[in-house]
Design a protein around this nucleic acid. Structure first.
Length: 802
DNA sequence: GGATTTTTTCTTTTT
DNA sequence: GAAAAAATCC
């Protein structure tokens, strides 16, 4: 075919996918096989060679970052085309479409989007109002049931529930839905669920939308859940030009309802779909691919396949045994220094871990070594209390029915609206069957000048000041107030800023700074939206004939962007020269010349939670996760594990991950220097913490026989059976036997603030008890067994020796 | 009624 | 070892 697009940089199957004609196509794209390249080239091809207007092409991704990257790369290929292209995550795309068609769907155009915390707050409210015990029916559990149900396109009436509390939970679900509707709020699951309901239940709407998008491209299709599949099916139902791309080996969101069958059985729903397989890897060395393959090939539920590459063998994969998580962090620091001394940028080094909690130690070490780093995800900026407070004010202005936001800020800063007044409001709302805002207005009317009346007035005044921000069509009255200016106004008028300024502590200063940076990001948003350049992550989804008045206001759009992206866009984030730290999940889709994966221990990676039975499915997903982690590396891959680690502030022994034991010996290089594993200095049994059970629990238990005398020499006799480093599973494992860990701390007899195990102590309330264990930490705590009161954890300073 | 201090709980992974 | 919840103090 004659093309204006340069296709000489693509291999044969890639070209096939790019030039594919009408009809469905599924591309199986292995790690590093040029998946994004294919999508971007195909879009460019559709625009350049078929003259398809960019706004009639919809590309859907899972993360904002992937959406952004797609736009960027398209813009380089076809300058200008990216502007009109509809690219976004599943969630942002649905949010946009729902707003645009809100009238048809009997939804408020300015509906709020509730994140997990908001959702949990709402569930707690419902539980309280139905007088159900949060201990018996934890909000978290209900949330997970509700989310799962929506992923499966089930509502309260058709979700299958079993168990004693099944009907109670169903009632909570039902009531939750009512409250959400009343609050003009949708949760994450709703965005997809409601959109699918709308499309499937409204023929005209489906024809309109599916007719509008001539081409539909979906990335990471292996991670779609049932609802998302139905969405794609509906949107592709008219033109059927559907391209889905994915790799079943990289499916890592089973817990979120992802179903690999969606890609594996794609032809069941689209029997005429063509199939293209991309199997050449351009990213990694041969050794890295072999090591990654060694882990993934053990999966039973998997299509056998193997990536190949023309790249060199590369250096051996380093497998390092460390004495503790601090030693692991030291490895990271050393690697960063090596980068610098080798004249390579820090940005080419990335560190992956299984869970966020592992980042702190790494951060501390890097900070101490004065090495620039950034953490992707983790403690989110938008999760900080002060940021949530300001956002709650803004949300309340945008949508006064938002009960959760109302309750969050009604007394922040304190304005004399205490528990009693709030309970009265809630009571009134419940008996009158209205939202809290309406109840507050009633209260304000009946009692002029009351604190509640003042608060209602505050919100209403703020609303009046920003008509242009609330509705795009509205004419700005007088001088138009900008988004950032408005936020500043909220901060002063509410007294929030003053309360922080008055506090005048290091912490309040930090909060003010965070608020300033939030306002700054609002300014940025305002500037980029003002130019009418669709922001990178927000698909415009606007057709030329859309009336402007249908467009939600700037404030609503900002709030949506903020909720649907977990962290503020940092335009230079990738450009700054710093080491990147993130979870393996966050790493999907990225690549780095040098990668370190830490914490490769049983129970941690593969992860095993508290009461999860170790089902084969879970383990297979952990393998895919490891596969994703390893295949991010281009040239150098280092894998570390630690023989001991603090979990929850308690020391746990770790055993080497089975994944490391499975690696081909000729491709790895093992190291571990220093002294013996750090012994237990406190009881691993029976203490409160051991009920956590998961990490290091049973399999580490056999290791408590380590000497607690400070032998610094490697004491073979004290090790568990020859050839097995304390694996409690009865398997003897080869490798790493006899290799001592890299550095380790000398054993210490734990004595915290003068307390030792076994001694008698006195407490003001509980009287005399016996010290069960000392925990350390800040503040130092001691577990004490008080006869008649049971075992308590007490901060050391409230105890005295008896 | 509200702030402060103390105790308990919590942790996989994310839109 | 932090955040939420509960208990206690003012």
């Amino acid at each position: 075919m004659e093309t204006r697009l340069d296709l000489t940089t693509l291999n044969e199957p890639q070209v096939e996918a790019v030039l594919h004609g009408p009809g469905p196509l599924v591309v199986f794209a292995g790690a590093g096989s040029g998946k994004t390249r294919v999508i971007v080239h195909r879009i460019a091809h559709l625009v350049l060679d078929h003259g398809c207007p960019a706004w009639r092409i919809l590309a859907v991704t899972f993360t904002n970052r992937a959406a952004g990257e797609m736009k960027e790369r398209l813009d380089r290929l076809v300058p200008g085309a990216a502007r009109d292209l509809a690219v976004g995550t599943f969630h942002s795309t649905c949010a946009r479409l729902l707003r645009r068609h809100s009238q048809d769907l009997r939804l408020s155009r300015d509906f709020a989007i509730y994140d997990d915390a908001d959702q949990k707050a709402m569930i707690s409210r419902v539980l309280k109002d139905l007088s159900l015990d949060e201990k018996r029916i934890p909000p978290k559990m209900v949330a997970s049931i509700i989310n799962q149900a929506k992923n499966e396109m089930q509502g309260p009436e058709d979700v299958p529930l079993t168990g004693l509390d099944a009907e109670r939970i169903r009632e909570v679900f039902r009531e939750y839905e009512k409250r959400m509707a009343k609050a003009n709020a949708l949760d994450f699951g709703d965005l997809i669920y409601q959109m699918v309901r709308a499309l499937e239940g409204n023929e005209a709407l489906r024809m309109q939308l599916a007719g509008r998008f001539v081409h539909l491209l979906v990335d990471e299709f292996q991670d779609t859940n049932h609802a998302q599949f139905r969405l794609v099916r509906a949107l592709a139902s008219v033109n059927r030009n559907l391209l889905v791309v994915g790799d079943d080996d990289q499916s890592i969101y089973r817990w979120r309802g992802a179903d690999r069958r969606n890609i594996l059985d794609f032809r069941r729903y689209f029997p005429d779909a063509q199939i293209v397989k991309l199997e050449q890897n351009y990213r990694s060395t041969k050794r890295i691919l072999r090591v990654a393959h060694a882990v993934i090939e053990k999966n039973v539920d998997r299509e056998p396949k193997q990536l190949w590459t023309d790249n060199p063998d590369g250096s051996k994969i380093k497998v390092l045994r460390c004495g503790s998580e601090r030693d692991e962090a030291e490895i990271v620091v050393r690697a960063a220094r090596e980068q610098v001394s080798a004249g390579k940028p820090l940005r080419s080094l990335a560190v992956f871990y299984r869970i966020h909690a592992q980042s702190r130690v790494l951060e501390e070490a890097l900070r101490a070594a004065r090495i620039a780093y950034r953490v992707v995800g983790g403690v989110r900026f938008y999760d900080r209390a002060e940021v949530k407070d300001l956002l709650a004010y803004l949300r309340l202005v945008s949508n006064p029915e938002d009960d959760i936001s109302f309750l969050r800020v009604v007394n922040v800063p304190t304005r004399g609206i205490g528990k009693t007044s709030i309970d009265r409001l809630l009571d009134d709302a419940a008996t009158q069957g209205t939202g809290v805002w309406a109840a507050a207005k009633r209260a304000a009317e009946s009692k002029n000048g009351s604190p509640i009346a003042k608060f209602v007035e505050l919100i209403e005044t703020l609303r009046e000041k920003a008509p242009a921000l609330l509705s795009e069509g509205a004419k700005p009255s007088g001088e138009a107030l900008g988004l950032a200016d408005f936020a500043r106004l909220v901060l002063t008028e509410s007294g929030y800023e003053k309360s922080l300024t008055d506090e005048n502590t290091a912490e309040s200063d930090a909060r003010l700074e965070n608020l300033a940076s939030l306002v700054g990001s609002m300014q940025e948003f305002e500037d980029s939206e003002g130019e009418d350049r669709p922001s990178v992550t927000a698909p415009s989804l606007a057709t030329p004939d859309d009336a402007p008045s249908e467009k939600p206001g700037l404030l609503t759009r900002f709030l949506e962007t903020v909720t649907l992206q977990s962290e503020p866009e940092d335009a230079n984030g990738d450009k700054k020269d710093q080491v990147t730290l993130m979870t393996v999940h966050a790493a999907k889709g990225l690549e780095f010349p040098r990668v370190i994966v830490v914490g490769l221990e049983e129970q941690l990676f593969p992860f095993r939670g508290v009461n999860e039975g170790e089902g084969p499915e879970e383990l297979e997903e952990e393998r895919r996760l490891a596969y994703v982690a390893f295949t991010r590396a281009e040239e150098s891959l280092t894998l570390t594990w630690a023989t001991s680690r603090y979990v929850f502030g308690n020391l746990r022994l770790g055993t080497i991950s089975r994944f490391l034991d499975e690696l081909p010996l000729q491709d790895i290089e093992q190291r571990g220097e220093g002294t013996s594993p750090r012994p237990f200095t406190e009881s691993p049994y029976g203490s409160r913490s051991s009920s956590f059970g998961g990490y290091g629990g049973s399999s580490g238990g056999g290791s408590s026989g380590y000497p607690s005398s400070g032998s610094s020499s490697y004491d073979k006799g004290s090790m568990p059976r020859e050839g097995s480093l304390g694996y409690g599973d009865g398997f003897t494992r080869r490798s790493l036997h006899g290799i001592a860990p890299i550095k380790s701390e000398p054993p210490k007899e734990k004595e915290i603030a003068g307390f030792k195990k076994g001694m008698k102590v006195r407490h003001v309330r509980y009287g005399v008890g016996k010290v069960y264990s000392v925990e350390g930490g800040t503040p130092p705590t001691v577990t004490v067994d008080f006869p008649g009161h049971g075992t308590k954890q007490i901060v050391a300073k409230y105890l005295e020796p008896a």
